[in-house]
Computed example of a mutant assay.
Amino acid sequence: MSNKNTQALSAAGVSIWIDDLSRGQLNDGSLQKLVDEFNVTGVTTNPTIFANALKNGDDYAEQVAELAASDLTLDESVMEITTRDVANACDLFAGLYQSTKGVDGRVSIEVDPRLARKTAETIEEAKKLFEKVSKENVLIKIPATQEGLEAITAVTAAGISVNVTLIFDLERYRAVINAYLLGLEQAREAGHDLSKIHSVASFFVSRVDSEIDKRLNELGTDEALALRGKAGVANARLAFQVFEQALETERWKTLAAQGANPQRPLWASTGVKDPSYSDTLYVDSLVTAGTVNTMPHKTLMAVADHGGDGADGIAGTYEASNEILDSLARVGIDYDDVVELLEAEGLEKFDASWEELLDGLQQSLDAARKS
């Protein structure tokens, strides 16, 4: 029997993905349990997740020993480890992938974040990851930097499904949608089956509140403080409006008639960072059909324990959401400055996690060579 709260989310049309993966979860059946009991239908990964997995478990010892005895570089060794976990997770979700015709049963793996400002290198790495994992249900994560937009188009045009990550800005989100549609148009011209190409656009939520709340606290006025904890949800709700508007265009309708799949909005960064807010805020407030919510394990368990009833949290909210952003501007919050900072910080955090992953693997390889 699945949990009633996660079942309600699923029934409302929300795909529940878990923002976590380790070889231990694959080996001990805990990931399968999340599928069976908590309606989890996909996985997202990032460098932090892999760094923690490698650091906290002995499940990699055998492969590390093999890699230590090989001639592979450190970067190549990281790819061997991460793609094996992702490929095995893809196998676990293969049934869901088939039964949902590619909508769910997805596992994401991220391009080396050090390439986020390098278009050609991102394209090359994305194709390499896709070939290495060699599973139809993998999603290749590409950050939505200005340089990443062309890569999103090129990788989609090659028939590869993409998870566009690190989106904070509504204007950038419009550019992401355009990049996907252009990729589909190029894929069609190249003879690819559009029905096989899927994509999600990962719109980050809690980090928006964290930065804006900090600025509101510094302002300290009653008007400013009354806006705390409202920006992230309002921004995400307006992102869904952007998505709906894209579906009304003739450009999209033409592609849809040729078998194309919509690029679903995915709510990322849904773990609540301010303990004064409900720990299910970024799930309950963003329920609507046709979306994905990727949750840290802690958030998923909070939803399972005391989440909402699956009621739509987006319909009818656009006017109020616009008013929240207008009110933020009136008290002196610079939206463009916030989202620019968040993108830069996000890339810095991923770079730091990647270096941590490399350092951790290097230590493991060194230890294996000495043993």
Rank of each mutant, 00 (worst) to 15 (best):
L9G: 13
A12N: 13
S15E: 05
W17C: 05
D19A: 07
L26M: 12
G29S: 10
G29K: 08
L34I: 00
V35L: 13
V40Q: 08
T45K: 03
T48S: 15
N56T: 11
D58Y: 05
Q63S: 12
Q63Y: 11
S70I: 12
S70N: 12
D71R: 13
I81S: 09
T83G: 10
D85C: 11
N88M: 13
F93H: 05
L96H: 12
S99I: 07
R106Y: 11
I109H: 13
E110T: 00
L115M: 09
A116N: 12
R117T: 10
I123P: 08
E136F: 01
E136R: 14
N137T: 09
I140V: 14
K141M: 11
G148A: 03
I152C: 14
N163Y: 07
T165P: 07
L166K: 04
I167T: 08
I167E: 03
D169M: 11
E171V: 12
R174D: 15
R174M: 06
I177Y: 12
I177T: 10
A179K: 10
Y180D: 10
Q186R: 13
E189R: 12
G191I: 07
S195L: 09
I197P: 01
H198F: 14
H198I: 08
S206E: 06
D209Y: 06
L216H: 10
E218I: 02
E218D: 07
A226P: 04
L227N: 02
A236D: 07
A236I: 06
A239M: 13
A239Q: 09
A246F: 10
T249R: 08
E250Y: 07
L255F: 08
A256Y: 09
A256D: 10
Q258Y: 02
V272A: 08
Y277F: 15
T280D: 04
L286V: 07
A302S: 15
V303C: 06
H306P: 02
G308S: 03
A315L: 11
S321K: 05
N322Q: 15
D326W: 09
A329Y: 00
V331W: 01
G332V: 00
D337A: 15
L341R: 11
L342G: 01
E345R: 11
L347V: 11
D351R: 00
L358M: 15
G360Q: 04
D366K: 13
A368H: 06
